[in-house]
Amino acid sequence: MSESPTATPPVLEVENLVTTFDTDAGRLTAVDGVSFTVRAGQTVGIVGESGCGKSVTALSIMRLLPQPMGQIRGGEIRLKGKDLVSLPIEDMHDIRGGKIGMIFQEPMTALNPVHTIGRQLSEVFLLHLTKDPKDAWQRGITMLEKVGIPAPADRMHEYPHQLSGGMRQRVVIAMALACEPSVVIADEPTTALDVTIQAQILELMQQLQRDLGIAIVLITHDLGVVAEMCDEVVVMYAGRVAESGPVERIFEHPTHPYTRGLLASIPRLTTPRKAKLPVIEGMVPSLADLPSGCRFQNRCPHRDERCDQLPPLEEVAADHHCACHRWRELPPNNAN
């Protein structure tokens, strides 16, 4: 999976994406110059806290930004070389659900409560692959079987509320993978689930990725999920990329003060009990009130006058980038 990620061609390339929202408080830049590349069979994790722009990045890729407030103002999103930003919105219908699958956080809201599983699932096939309803229904049963739903033919006749949370998420995954997309965007796919069910769903996603060779963009706030699932990580803070690189690099040599602080602050099973946890002081600034220069400066223990300028994303090691003026001067990190 991760052994030779550079050998496979890029499937999805996001370059310098800028997305804004027009609100009462003026124009807010939710995503500000984000770039990353996802290759076939690879999982790229986008991590960050609420409001960092990770979900807006996903919506921008799908061109599903709330209209007319949300607009892509700059950058390119290329799916197998084809730019999606300039594509007429009608052409996106083929892409969504066809070439790019989506998995959302809350399967109950992603599914329509008044239609059976079978109707919703076969709709995907009818839109993209076949005209024959019987064929679509059969394909639906096959798909449910593939995602590990017992008695799939019976489940097709049931409604979402008759399934457990884990089963519903399996149905959502079945819908996302129905047309064998080249990319799946999963926005917090396991956040609403219990840990043992989360383990099942993550296992399923990995297995399907191995079988189908799809690229996954995994959006999450859970660094544990990132460590288990991802090959590459993009750490976002207040709309910008703070740090990005191979998962081992990020967890073993976190370089940006934000990444370091985040990794240090999580209680682990191995942390001494009741010890004071290291914290990142303060909180994420509001988009309407961003500091000029480095977005993290008001919480950063290492800030100096240079931080009033926006730091460029610099190469720290092969494929490992960090947006901090002071990364060379910081004490060597000893995370983990």
Partner: peptide, 12 residues
Amino acid sequence: LISAIPQPEARR
């Protein structure tokens, strides 16, 4: 339950 918790450590 314990083994199901994803640990924030690279590739356990």
